[in-house]
Write a protein that binds this DNA or RNA. Sequence first.
DNA 1: CAGTGGTCTAGACCACATG
DNA 2: ATGTGGTCTAGACCACTGC
Lengths: 252, 252
Amino acid sequence: MVKPSAKAPPAGSKESHERLPAYLHIVRTISDRIASGVYGPGAKLPSEAQLCVEFAVSPMTVRRALVILADKGVVAAEQGRGTFVRSFDLSDSVFTLEQLTGEWLDGSTEVRLLSASTVKADEQLGAMLSVPVGRRLVYLRRLVVKDETPAVYHKEYVIFDLQRPLVESQLKLTSLHGLLQANRGHGFPGGEITLCALALEEEAASALDQPVGAPALCLEHLSRDSAGVPMSWGRFLLRYDLFRLRARLGRG
Amino acid sequence: MVKPSAKAPPAGSKESHERLPAYLHIVRTISDRIASGVYGPGAKLPSEAQLCVEFAVSPMTVRRALVILADKGVVAAEQGRGTFVRSFDLSDSVFTLEQLTGEWLDGSTEVRLLSASTVKADEQLGAMLSVPVGRRLVYLRRLVVKDETPAVYHKEYVIFDLQRPLVESQLKLTSLHGLLQANRGHGFPGGEITLCALALEEEAASALDQPVGAPALCLEHLSRDSAGVPMSWGRFLLRYDLFRLRARLGRG
DNA sequence: CAGTGGTCTAGACCACATG
DNA sequence: ATGTGGTCTAGACCACTGC
């Protein structure tokens, strides 16, 4: 029947504790079963058809739930064979930078512009930014201070381009959020970002009130415009005692 | 019409260059338009109904594509208003540990067990593992060597539990992959993992062939069983000059 | 109120895996 | 041949937004 009314009372079952959409209810229920061992690691889930019957929903709804679970890495679907419970690796860990803005970003966070000048690209910078040695670059140094404690040192080289008067707005960045936003290539692929550890050199060390050689997290970023041409390169140095990235498993 | 044949030649349109499913075709097309500026940052996408017409598919298919795009962080849907192009932050970066196993894990990688012993929990360990001071713990030290170069130092404390003869299998771990797999709580929430920078202390430094005080990436892990009870705590120390996490934006 | 996204149905056909 | 996941349809009702 299709014409009269493809209607269905959304909460057909008994427990509708929270007005949860059906597909999320299925996600949660299956997650719980995996967590509690009803479906152990490597086990095969009931087929989609069976789940349709059990949850009294249509195939698309079950499907949607399974896609979400697969997406979170909790299960893996194999065409023609079934859907299986996956077990986690440490290597499934996913680290996010939200933490650097989220909780951390409140009223007591302040961005200070330490210096702004122009420099000529040396060999190393030229290679990184794909410009000839001697090319004029804007050189910016910033310090993020929280509760009077220096926490992040940022240095950045921006290609000076008369066509693109980005520099002015870049200079004005005095909020951390703005700083992070500005460092996107607002084309699509955007750029590359890497994270590593390193030892602080004199300049950064003194800015961060740390001894020379102290460890730090280094967040390096290369922005490109929509054509893939480098626009800027820089690095954030994060005091090792103040920053710690927490992971969540899968994508939960 | 529903009875006769809810059939549709999958490639109704002209270009079927790759036999791409319709929903992926839509994802790609919209992504391209955003990348090339047809839909600029903050712009409103055509409504779902309009997209249905344009791509000649049913609402569910358009919906699916939009959910994927929203999921990747490329667009944001707002109920009752529309779907809008989002622009990336640096804080959208996502770091994965696959890199530590993927490329890096080949034949020349070897895991050496440096020592295995039992120790009594001191105050600090007791607190971390939620056990009383003096509790017996298994203490493991490992070194991952690649091409004769020490790269990762791993120390781990496992709660000694006669009920759970994990220890034996833990001892045998001599492959990196196995090591990473073993450090999962194979219950569901699994555990917590954090990433930070620190300075190497004497023991780790000598094992890694680095000077004391050299920076390192530290990957700390706390495993819990399915009931949430801690099972082990440990940390991987990664030589700063050998490891670098690359990010991808959104979830792409 | 009309427009928009959010959820859902009851099927269909296809591709793949297994016995 | 059977069972499984993968894709898709042509609608439906709901909740929310904005005029």
